[in-house]
Design a protein around this nucleic acid. Sequence first.
DNA 1: GCCCAGGTGGGTA
DNA 2: TACCCACATGGG
Length: 219
Amino acid sequence: MVGLKPEAIMQALEPLYGRPENRPSGDPVAELVLTILSQNTHDRNSGKAFVQLLTTFGSWAEIAMAEEAEVVEAIRGGGLAQQKGPRIQGALCGVAQRTGGDFQLDFLRDMELEEARTWLRSLPGVGPKTAACVLLFALGLPAMPVDTHVERVAKRLGLVPGKMTAEKAHAALEALVDPSDYYRFHMLLIKHGRRICAARKPACPACPLRRSCPASETR
DNA sequence: GCCCAGGTGGGTA
DNA sequence: TACCCACATGGG
């Protein structure tokens, strides 16, 4: 354990990556679909699959009602299409069922945060990370997405125990970080984690976190 | 040709 | 509860 506090970590990383500002996107359903497509997939692939999905079908309703094979074909370029196609269709159907046919998630704003999170997680293909992405990025609600980068960096910095499971680490980090800083914390750790992965260096001499930086981790 | 990417869900002990 | 593993494509 190195005893670094979240605020100190964010202050150290901001000179490198800038200060992230959350501007909630307009369409939570688009965020939901895009996040499912991005699961364990590189951004460039998931982004292409998302564009292809939107150009192939004219609306969320069409995607939900389409033959599964058509949806799978549209998102093939994103990888894991056999899994993600049915999950996207199932999630869209879940949304429509809840709203009586509308493809929108504004009703989540009227729920308690944990109720909204639980409802999202009841959809196929929606786990803790995807639910948090929709709540934070699209609706501007205080949930923190914890992906592999955030989890790995946070464990290395001693914010959470290294042996903690991903789901517990998620809850622990949400408790540790001020809710108004969720977006800032998430984005800074993502950027730092990506840089570490991209560099694949045994050490990161420029890192402001120095010895406590995950970049000193030998992979 | 190999490696990796912003998870999830099912199976097993 | 805690692991382990399959899932699949494109670009470096």
